[in-house]
Design a protein around this nucleic acid. Structure first.
Lengths: 312, 312
DNA sequence: GTGAAAGCGCTAACAC
DNA sequence: GTGTTAGCGCTTTCAC
C-alpha cells in the first residue's frame, strides 16, 4: 500500500545507508597538488584517474579526491579514522620521511591502500607499478642499435622509485651493449620541460666534444625541453643525435620530429590498483607489488640517426 | 574524566556527523569520460579541478568525482536526492537535449550547481565562463595586424557554447578589420589534434589558391595538428602563414614555432564556481553567468609573418 | 518468509 | 552555560 506511494519517488539516502553500514562507499585518491608549477604531467594523472574511476564505478564506489599540498603533513590514516574513505589510492608518492611514515601508519593499522607508479622496496606497501627498469633497458638498447655510442641519461629526482628504476635499466642496457657507463653522462632534471631546456646547454657542450650522441630522458616533457634547447644550438633530434623520452604523452606526437618514447599503461595501472582494493574475490593480493610491462614506441627522434653516424 | 581518556585518540566519525547534519560535505564534480579518445585536453580539466579542489578545501568540503559516460543518462538530480553531494559542478557540458533536461531538473528543484566554461544562454543555469568571444576577437585582430587578409577559422562542435562564442568573435574581428567574412574559410574540427591534422589537406589547398593566409583554431590541439599537417605540404607557421590556437596549454610551448594562443584562467574559473556554491557570505550570486577575461599570448607562430607577406 | 525493534554515532533541541 | 535526550534514515537482528 504505502509501497505503491513510495515506489513513485522514493530514493534511499546514501548518507543514511552508509552510516548504518558503517561504510563510506568512497575510494579515496590522493593527488599531489603543485600549484602553478606543473612538475607532473597532467597526462599521467588523468590516465590513472580514468582507470581508477572506471573500476570504482563498477564496484559501486565513489571517488573522493584529495589534493595533497606540498608542505601540509600527510594524515592519510585520518581519512580512515574519520570514515571518509574505505580504501585509498596514493598517486605521486615520494620516498621521503613524512610520506613513509604516513604510509607505514596505514600499513600498521591495516587500512587498505595502494600506491601507483611508486614502490618502497624495503617496505611491504602494496603498489601497482610499471616495469620502468626493463622499459629503460629497451629504449637504451634501441638507441645503441641506432648507432649511439655515448648515451646520456637525463633523470628525475630519486625520491621517485621510477627514477631509480630507469637508471638501473640504463646501466644494464649500456652493459648489454658493451658501452661504458660514465656518470658524467647523467644529468639531473626534475621532470619539467623547463629543466630539460636548462640542461640543454651543458648537453650541447658535451655533444660538441663528442661525448654524447644519444639521450634518454626520464619523461617526455624533459625530452621535449631538451629537443627545444638543443635546437637553439643548431642540433636536431633524429639527425644530429637521437632522443627518446618516456610516457608516450600527447606531447610526444606534437614535436617535430615526433618523439621515440615508452608507453606506460597508466589507465590499466589505476584500474588494477582500484580492483585490488575493491574486488572481494578476484585475487591480485598475492604479490604486494605488481609491475606492468612498458612498451617501446619508436618515432622519428631516433629514426634516421643510425644511417649517418657511427663515428666513434 | 572520560574526556581525558577520549581526548587522546578520539576522532569523530565524519560519516555519523554528516548523517546527523544531513549534509554530505561533498562537492560533486562531473567530468566527461571519453575513454581512449581524448577529445578534451586533460590540461583544461586538471586546471579547473585544481581550482575547484583548492576552494572546496578552504570551505571544508571534499571533492566527489563522477565520470559521465558518453552514453549513460545523466541523473544529476539523483546525486542530490541520494544526498551524495551538497552542490555540483558540471564540466564539459554540451548543449544537447539530455543535458539540458538534466540541468533543468536541477534548476527546477533548486539544487545548487554551476557550469564551468559552458553557458546555456536561454536558460537560467548558473555558470562561470570565459570571455571567448572577446578573446577570439583579440586574436583575430592580432592576425589581421600581422598582415593576414584571409583568415580561416577552425572551429569545434557547436554543442559547446565557447565554439559559438569564438565564431562570433571571429566575425566581429573580421568586420572591425575591414575583412570579408567567407563561410568557406570556416572549418569544422572536433578539438582533437587529429581533426586538425585531417583538415590540413583542404586548408593547404585553400592556401595554395591564395584563399587563406592565417588560421585561428578553437584550441591548441587542433592548431598543433594543423601546424603538423601543413608542414607535410611544405607550409610553415610563422613564415608561410600565421597560426593561432586557444587555451595556452602545455603543448603551445612544445611546438616549433611556439604557438600564439589565448590564455584562459581555468583554475580561477574552477575556484570561482566552487566559491559561488560554497561561500555563504561572499556574494557572486547576483549575475547568473560570470565571464572571466582571456588573454592573448603572442608567440612565434604569428610573429614573423607580418614582415614578409601583404601580398593580397 | 514477513514484520517489529534496536541500534549506528553523531547533532540539536531541550531541559536544568 | 552544562547535561540530557530525542531523533537522523537506514541496516540488521530477532522474534514471529
Amino acid at each position: 500500500m504505502l509501497e505503491a506511494a513510495e515506489r513513485l519517488h522514493y530514493v534511499p539516502s546514501a548518507l543514511a545507508q552508509r552510516f548504518a553500514r558503517r561504510k563510506s562507499g568512497n575510494l579515496g585518491v590522493i593527488l599531489p597538488l603543485v600549484p602553478k608549477v606543473r612538475l607532473f604531467s597532467t597526462y599521467y594523472f588523468s590516465e590513472i584517474l580514468s582507470g581508477v574511476g572506471e573500476e570504482a564505478g563498477r564496484h559501486g564506489y565513489d571517488l573522493l579526491l584529495m589534493f595533497r599540498k606540498p608542505d601540509e603533513k600527510r594524515e592519510y590514516a585520518m581519512l580512515f579514522r574519520t570514515q571518509k574513505v574505505d580504501a585509498l589510492i596514493v598517486l605521486g608518492s615520494r620516498d621521503e620521511p613524512d610520506e613513509r611514515q604516513a604510509l607505514a601508519e596505514l600499513w600498521r593499522d591495516g587500512y587498505p591502500f595502494c600506491l601507483v607508479n611508486q614502490r618502497f622496496d624495503e617496505e611491504p606497501f602494496p603498489a601497482v607499478d610499471a616495469d620502468h627498469e626493463s622499459g629503460s633497458f629497451q629504449v637504451v638498447r634501441h638507441l645503441a642499435g641506432q648507432g649511439c655510442r655515448r648515451i646520456a641519461f637525463v633523470n628525475g629526482p630519486l625520491v621517485y622509485s621510477n627514477s631509480a628504476d630507469r637508471l638501473a635499466g640504463y646501466r644494464r642496457a649500456l652493459e648489454a651493449s658493451g658501452l661504458p657507463f660514465d656518470p658524467k653522462r647523467i644529468y639531473a632534471g626534475n621532470y619539467s620541460r623547463k629543466s630539460g631546456l636548462e640542461l640543454a646547454a651543458s648537453i650541447a657542450d658535451a655533444m660538441r666534444r663528442g661525448e654524447v650522441d644519444g639521450i634518454f630522458a626520464g619523461n617526455d616533457r624533459m625530452a621535449i625541453g631538451i629537443m627545444q634547447g638543443l635546437r637553439e644550438f643548431g642540433l636536431e633530434a633524429g639527425a644530429d643525435y637521437a632522443l627518446a623520452g618516456c610516457d608516450d604523452s600527447e606531447g610526444a606526437r606534437m614535436t617535430d620530429p615526433q618523439l621515440t618514447t615508452l608507453s606506460v599503461p597508466f589507465d590499466r595501472m589505476g584500474k588494477l590498483a582500484a580492483r585490488r582494493l575493491l574486488a572481494a574475490d578476484e585475487t591480485t593480493w598475492d604479490t604486494p607489488i605488481l609491475k606492468l610491462p612498458v612498451e617501446l614506441i619508436v618515432r622519428a627522434s631516433t629514426e634516421r640517426f643510425g644511417s649517418s653516424s657511427t663515428t666513434d
